[in-house]
């Protein structure tokens, strides 16, 4: 069953949080994963749920050769080691 707007955002946030550091997720990976569990979810809902998570600062886009969605964190290049 399709998720509500709020539940969809939490679902995506959890997915991104679980993948952090293990696998970089792209927007399309997120969409495909949502649709696997919730085949009737509207694709546009997913697109805008990601937008809301980014606009609210809970997730960020990152770029490491490809663009990914991650939880904000300090990146390796910014560290002084």
């Amino acid at each position: 069953m399709a998720l509500s707007k709020e539940a969809l955002a939490e679902y995506i946030y959890d997915m991104v949080a679980k993948a952090q550091g293990k696998k970089n997720l792209k927007a399309m990976d997120v969409q495909k994963a949502v649709l696997k569990e919730h085949p009737d979810q509207n694709k546009n809902d997913i697109k805008f749920a990601i937008k809301d998570l980014i606009d609210g600062g809970r997730c960020v886009y990152t770029y490491f050769g490809g663009s990914y969605i991650e939880i904000p964190h300090e990146e390796g290049a910014a560290k002084k080691v």
């Binding site: 550091g21 696998k23 970089n24």
Partner: peptide, 15 residues
């Protein structure tokens, strides 16, 4: 030595 502190191994391999 630096890799340990700076990088995630799974995503580095995937890159």
């Amino acid at each position: 030595e630096r890799l340990r502190h700076l990088c995630e191994i799974p995503t580095t391999i995937a890159s």
